[in-house]
Design a protein around this nucleic acid. Structure first.
Lengths: 215, 215, 215, 215
DNA sequence: TATGAATGAGTATTCATTCAT
DNA sequence: GATGAATGAATACTCATTCAT
């Protein structure tokens, strides 16, 4: 996943080349932000990662703020996609929720995961800040919806959907705080453990208890 | 909890007054950081909150970094206290863990909660940064220990203590992201819901299942 | 020697232009330091001299300290060059020493003379401070060497080379304290007088020795 | 000469006690300035040397500037005294000049020597700055006068009194740059060497020449 | 006398951003 | 497309100085 990211010197249609480079800028930004934090990352740092000079960045991006926004969005989009994909299925609310968790873990361990949860929307102006908050809210609502669906179809026990969504999202969003690319469990294993906890809880399961689908 | 915080013009022994003022500086910093973010808070902002001039802050604190450190510490100390208090009991691992969760929620919804989890230790020099990381690690270890104790005494089912600790801490640490002093459930209620989820999971409980302590 | 020093708006290769501008920054700093003293000179002052804004200075120089260092070095280099040039000759030790004095006076009446002797190496960090002290020491050693050479070849009478070097260097280094570009003797005349004093002393020269009324 | 300098806790008439303390403040300042440089010495530093707090200093001295002024003056006074003392004698100009040199060396190796020559009158306001410049000028004039007297009475050869005064003062004033209390020759020995150089010059003395008082 | 507390004024440094080339 | 050069704005920190007690 790391590797060289500078597509300067690349071929394709003008349009395509430009797009590739812009993506590379965003990705480099995401990595730098993750490594040093947004405020401790200067545009020079990012430019250096791309073997380019600072003003060049402005050819692809309007401002540092926009970089952050795009990083946010890249991360949030993955989650949102995960959510809507899960919803298209016909499985029970619980099964759909589990599916979302799996995709969520996958997404949040990516390069953009850090930005998604650690970057502060304080750093975005009111305009972009509002858009990000909107995206975050949609994901939140989606999770609550799934919980409610589960309660409705009997696959989830009685609970407070809002708090459950907060607890679940919190556990997932916290991953970038401790996840290390090379030193942590693979995303799928993390997801397994999380599903286990959230589905069955910590209380010991008694004989003949729920035939959960824990892997 | 908010209210006036400036103890300028207050009485008491010199020692005591100085201590009060220093605490007020830290608290004002914590609130400002929570409201605007660390990097968007200037010392002038904090000074203004206290109706004092900037250099006065330096009379009580060595640097902006030290302010952040003290905020960190104020929050972490509460959690650490909660942990060690819980451990002193003779209850089962699970009961102790639940107790920690309750105190944790109480602590993290305080003014210092935000700093504790959102402030980046990137902003601390190597010296102070290391100390914070140490404190955080201790809390993490403590939680894992309780999980293991619960597994050992049978009050907690088989699980991966490390991942469980991450999930639990994540859910708890995420609280400052959504908690609003006046608009959210009271801390005790949040704790109840969280305990419910983490102890019993989302799967519907079968008749006559665990006699949990759900409220 | 004063004259306009801002090469902003000048031509040449990019490399060359940059070099010229950096030199201009150093020179402007030297003049400002000489006029107002290091600590009373703000970067704004220097920037104003160059009709440039403050951050521009940082494009050419890393810090105010570096400016001072370069001023130091510019002056010391001239002296060092004078010393080594003199030594290459085959003249007697005394003649070489006299040659050094002439070049020394020339150098120390330059714009950088003041920095060389009046700026305190206290103002340089340990790193740069050490380098400056090293350069100063080399010049000192060089002068002592010439004195010793003179004693050896008989062109200089018996004396304490170290103290002679101190006396000589002191007289020369003091020049910036009283020298005024427009109001003092030209450098060569100053050198003549100094050579006269140091070579023959104050005692009247006469056929058959002085009827000194030595105590 | 170093030793403890704080006379707080001392007896005597009120007047006398105050005077002693003021002197101690000036001396502490002189030492601090010599050790760290004027601009790198804070009033806290000086107060600490005296085991006193900063505002206390203001009870004895009007400002940091005044401290510097008094240090200047303390040094210059010693020189001036040396000059006028020498002049009272009936010896030849040369002998009087030699006497001045001896006293000068004695004075300039004192704690105040550094301030006298290294402190910049830039740091004094126009008022005090002018007074210092006046004092310095008087000493300069005095030396020139002695040189002229020597020329007149035949004890000094033909020369440019102004340049000779500059050379001589330079050599003497430079002493604080290299003099170390514990590691250099004693003042009297330094004076001997300097007198030797300035009286007889570096040129080897011819047979039967001056029966100088070389050590 | 001495001090704890407070402050006003000043300054080096950083960095996102712009623009002529 | 890309860059060298320049800048405006912002901010942490220092310190001499004052004053009520």
């Amino acid at each position: 996943m790391p590797g060289p990211i500078s597509p300067w010197r690349v071929t394709g249609t003008r349009e395509r080349r430009r797009e590739l480079k812009r993506d590379a800028v965003i990705l480099a930004a995401a990595r730098a932000f993750r490594a040093r934090g947004y405020h401790h990352t200067s545009l020079d740092d990012i430019a250096a990662l791309l073997h380019v000079t600072k003003p060049t960045l402005y050819y692809y991006v309007a401002s540092k703020e926009e970089m952050l926004f795009e990083c946010f969005r890249a991360g949030l989009d993955r989650i949102a996609t995960a959510c809507s994909k899960a919803r298209r299925g016909t499985a029970s609310g619980r099964e759909q929720l589990i599916e979302v968790v799996r995709s969520y873990v996958e997404a949040i361990t990516s390069d953009f995961g850090w930005c998604m949860v650690r970057a502060e929307d304080q750093d975005l102006g009111p305009e972009l800040g509002a858009r990000i908050r909107q995206l975050k809210s949609e994901i939140d609502q989606e999770i609550r919806r799934l919980v409610r669906a589960g309660i409705a179809d009997g696959s989830i026990g009685d609970c407070d959907p809002k708090m459950v969504a907060f607890a679940l999202a919190g556990a997932l969003n916290w991953i970038p705080h401790w996840y290390r690319d090379n030193a942590s469990l693979p995303a799928s294993a993390i997801a397994d453990r999380f599903v286990e906890v959230f589905v069955h809880g910590l209380a010991p399961r008694r004989e003949g208890a729920l035939p959960g689908k824990s892997s």
